[in-house]
Design a binder for these strands. Structure first.
Lengths: 215, 215
DNA sequence: TGCGCACGACTGTGATCACAAACCGGTCAT
DNA sequence: ATGACCGGTTTGTGATCACAGTCGTGCGCA
């Protein structure tokens, strides 16, 4: 009985399309309001319309794309109220996730977070917006994975996805090298086992992007 | 120019299938671990496999259904950790929603909530589990609609959906007529404009179901 | 009697096609 | 010049089909 349960021999076509579009959206590579067509997506990924439609349905269900009344798909045109809401959701979810990760955060995790943090600084110096966004999300995901709360983490990722199209322009104007500042506060709070400090640091980090847009 | 923009002349087939399955899941009419087949769903709704598959994709994306490694779909088998997590999510999201609704809660809303509450009592007396669940959710949705936070409300509904398959058995053993107790506390806090009291009441109401399962 | 194995039915996947509605030009009348 | 109208083209929708993988059942063998 050497039934090697290979988890992913060759991902289904609709899965490939989904992942491709999802990362592009989450990293802000598609501007808000951009229109997409099923045939265009299908041709781009070298598949037929069927898997393209299924991936679109998933992304629409996750709020990453919107469907016009006639079925046209596009990246959502984001309003200020929506951004405020999504930022509030990030604060709610991620503060809780960080708090749950705190008792499980041993030194190896903190080391890893510091490594990621320096990678973020490099991306900032390089003015690499996509690299910055990706590494920044990796920082948060690495921490929250320790919370052992998959459903909560999935919701947080959904919020990141919905913020994707604005991330680009949001973080485009934020190439100050002060960005990992709150990350350092997070790491310090983790080291000290300081839960209130951690909650405040995460909340500050998450809502910092909002403030510059509200002006 | 009498272009009558009818919003929904005849809902698309995949939409009908989606709504049908969604309400059945959210109301707990499908037990956990139940297996579903595309052809079965298609035949039941009188459509082909295509719209059935699309609705399944949406529901899987929302966490209402799970996909086995071979693509088989079934309602999720829910563990205690998952329930704890989902209850925590309900608490986080709904406390925030209630708090945001509080300043906008005028007397007409409170009257409506009281009406819904008495309907809940009737369902309890009738031992009508599905009616109880539906009316209970209507109570919460009516309140949260006032929060003017559509993304947050959508997330809360997603959590309800994920809790659906367990709701039935959870609330099945809870046919004590004490159920609208926390609802009365919520209404009282709304009347008094007591935000801390409201937060506590919502949190208590939302997590009450968990406690009896944790034992 | 118990265990493995093969066969058949079933299930999800993806491609293709026909169809209806929406969109987008240019054109014409006012 | 501005507006409505009308064609062709594009777009989403849903049905159907062929195919590959999976699951289960019953048979056969030890």
């Amino acid at each position: 009985m050497l039934m090697q349960t290979r988890p992913d021999p060759s991902p289904a076509a609709h899965e490939r399309v989904y992942r491709g579009l999802r990362t592009r959206i989450m990293l802000g590579e598609i501007p808000p309001g951009e229109a997409l067509t099923l045939r265009g997506i299908a041709k781009e990924f070298g598949v037929s319309m069927t898997p393209a439609r299924e991936s679109i349905r998933r992304l629409v269900a996750e709020g990453a794309l919107t469907l016009s009344s006639s079925g046209r798909v596009s990246t959502p045109e984001i309003t200020n109220e929506r951004i405020e809401e999504l930022a509030a959701l990030r604060a709610l979810l991620e503060v809780e996730l960080a708090s749950r990760a705190l008792p499980r955060a041993h030194i190896a995790l903190i080391d890893r977070l510091q490594t990621i943090n320096s990678t973020i600084s490099e991306a900032v110096d390089r003015h690499d917006a996509v690299g910055y966004i990706r590494t920044n999300l990796e920082f948060h995901r690495t921490l929250y994975l320790r919370a052992q709360a998959p459903a909560m983490l999935a919701m947080a990722e959904t919020v990141w996805l919905q913020l994707g199209p604005t991330m680009r322009k949001l973080y485009g104007r934020l190439h100050r090298k002060e960005s990992p500042h709150f990350h350092r506060l997070i790491i310090a709070a983790l080291k000290a086992g300081d839960e209130p400090g951690l909650r405040l640091a995460v909340r500050s980090d998450v809502t910092q992007g909002l403030r510059m847009l509200a002006t």
